[in-house]
Design a protein around this nucleic acid. Structure first.
Lengths: 183, 183
DNA sequence: GTCTATACACAGATAGAC
DNA sequence: GTCTATCTGTGTATAGAC
């Protein structure tokens, strides 16, 4: 009974694709690479996914859904709480979906009409807060991009070490007070 | 006398490639795209550059040289000065070469054996300073990646607005004192 | 569901005329 | 220096057998 079901095969394709995309980029990985990784043929991969792009979309979906949910939750809060909540939620999300985040970093530059660009912009807007000066915007961008980068770095840090560090540095970069000192 | 010299053509290719690579990615841009952009043929592009990869290397060279020079300069300084100097120099470099930095962001994920990865690691090391805890490393990564990201954002900020904002936020993120308050 | 074979487009690169 | 034509490899995707 080592035989996989269709659903298992599909998940295995997603796992292999995530690994390969994050290592070699979306464009740098072919369907043949993915198929070879799991011992199937290209045609099998395209049986489970209508196209390479559809595979990418399905791969990204869970992380995108979580980000959308976070933005919805945050939008109901007053500004001060919203920023704190956005940082913590975004750090959690990035740690949870760090393989997906790594894939997104290898994707083509985001265009303004892209769906993910709009989510990214909304998050930056929340962190930027009410100040519309250069420094506030720069800080917000640095935090959003920086958290993703620091999180996808190959390192031996556990999530338990990573999370408080990311939150603390983000708060500092944004000029917000540290929330709960460790100890 | 509108005829271009060979050197001018070569520079025009580099300019067009920089624009296209940063908009669509290195892999997302073909030699035909570049040729079309400047009204030449693929063969002409390959007359001036041995290969697409050679074109990329030549495109990156000036920025890489500046970064190498900065690291050399910084390595002669005591730590406190080194970090301040590295931040300011890196911000200047990123602003000066922001089109090149945008291209690098679209490139494949950096592998440890890559030349640019090593430069990046050295810069992170300097900013990290003596502390080898998670927070110091996270802050250093956030600053290096964040400055590049904030700088390549399409925005209406002038370099004069951008530079002090980048330096200020970087110092704050690293937990260093602000150097010269504006005003 | 998975395979082999294949269609078709496009990539990077070369040859040779001008 | 620049071109057209072409070679060769590889990519995504489809057709049809099993």
């Amino acid at each position: 009974m080592l035989r996989r079901t269709g659903a298992e095969t599909k998940q295995e394709i997603l796992n292999a694709a995530t690994r390969l995309f994050s290592d070699y980029g979306y464009r740098g990985t072919s369907l043949a690479d993915i198929a070879h990784e799991i011992g199937y043929s290209k045609a099998s991969v395209l049986y489970h996914f209508a196209s390479k792009e559809a595979l990418l979309a399905e791969l990204i979906a869970p992380a995108a859904a979580d980000l959308r949910a976070l933005l919805a939750r945050v939008s109901t809060l007053p500004l001060a709480q919203a920023r704190k909540c956005a940082i913590e939620g975004y750090v959690d999300l990035t740690i949870t979906h760090k393989e997906t985040v790594a894939v997104l970093q290898t994707e083509e530059p985001l265009l303004p009409q892209d769906l993910h660009f709009q989510l990214y912009e909304r998050l930056v807007g929340v962190l930027q807060g009410e100040d519309h000066n250069a420094q506030a915007r720069v800080a917000a961008i640095m935090v959003v991009v920086g958290i993703a980068a620091a999180c996808t770095e190959r390192s031996d840090l556990t999530p338990e070490q990573l999370k408080p560090a990311l939150v603390a540095v983000a708060l500092r970069a944004l000029g917000l007070p540290a929330d709960s000192p460790p100890g």
